[in-house]
């Protein structure tokens, strides 16, 4: 187990005038840890995710990331060039709607290869080989490498999005409702895939979801948010099996049994 966390979040708040997006969120994330941020609509979980992933500037607080050289850098004191580079290499961001995270008019192979080309890979054959390998890992048949995502089903697009994000070996992946909008059987397949990849690659991940089953399956730790505040956090199975806060108990008891 390494001694240093990968991400240090301290007092992050985002206000829209007097409205609270999220307030005073602090936690550390270690390598290989998956954190689920759970809450209902309006809880602030997506706002928080965007503040952590530099898509939204917080009103207060800091987010520090441990770079590959071991040094911690405050993400909001970095140049935009450095942030964008980080986004392309060390991080991934899986959007709820795969179309937001893919180039829909470019082939699947090019979608996966783009990040490699962006960091200077210049050998067509090797890029294609890597893309084929990754398509295989996300269970997309290799013969679809030249097809555009426009021709893919929702589940396939989402898996392609995951491959596109993971090809540069990121250490931290942000996911915004990765299974939202997918059919149940498709969700199961995707979750199993994500679980496997996160384990195999030792990824850290921050997953925003309103689905507690997704949190249980994917995450080690969980944060429950309500009205912009973190009201409970801890080991995922502890929070789900022994909820302490009233709102958490409400959430857990509201899950419909099949």
């Amino acid at each position: 187990m390494s001694d240093n966390p990968l991400l240090k979040v301290s007092g992050v708040s985002k206000f829209y005038g007097s409205r609270i997006g999220c307030q005073d969120v602090s936690f550390d994330l270690w390598p290989g840890e998956v954190l689920a941020i759970v809450g209902e609509s309006g809880s602030g979980k997506t706002t928080l995710l965007n503040c952590l992933s530099t898509r939204l500037m917080p009103s207060a607080g800091s987010v520090e990331y441990r770079m590959r050289d071991g040094n911690f850098r405050d993400l909001y004191h970095m140049s935009e060039a450095e942030r964008r580079f980080l986004m392309r290499t060390d991080w991934g961001f899986v959007h709820q709607n795969p179309a937001d995270g893919l180039r829909m008019t470019v082939s699947a192979g090019a979608n996966v290869g783009e990040r490699l080309m962006a960091v200077g890979d210049r050998h067509y054959g090797k890029i294609r080989e890597t893309a084929t390998d990754w398509l295989g890992r996300v269970e997309i048949s290799a013969d679809r490498i030249d097809d555009q995502p426009r021709a893919f089903s929702g589940g396939m697009r989402q898996r392609l999005q995951i491959a596109r994000n993971l090809v540069t070996g990121p250490r931290l992946v942000f996911m915004d409702e990765p299974t939202g909008g997918l059919d149940v059987s498709v969700q199961a397949r995707l979750l199993d895939l994500v679980r496997g990849l996160v384990n195999d690659l030792g990824l850290s991940a921050i997953v925003v979801t309103h689905d507690l089953a997704v949190a249980r399956l994917l995450s080690h730790r969980m944060m429950v948010m309500k009205d912009g505040h973190v009201i409970e956090q801890g080991l995922t199975d502890r929070v789900l099996d022994d909820p302490r806060e009233p709102y958490t108990q409400l959430l857990v008891s509201s899950i419909l049994q099949v």
């Binding site: 935009e80 060039a81 964008r84 392309r88 180039r103 470019v106 082939s107 192979g109 090019a110 290869g113 783009e114 990040r115 080309m117 962006a118 960091v119 210049r122 067509y124 890029i127 294609r128 490498i145 030249d146």
Partner: peptide, 19 residues
């Protein structure tokens, strides 16, 4: 251009070769 992010240009060439 400002950030020298030209991966997309090579994507176009990649697509050409693929097709």
């Amino acid at each position: 251009h400002a950030l020298e992010e030209y991966g997309l240009m090579h994507v176009k060439l990649y697509e050409d070769i693929a097709h």
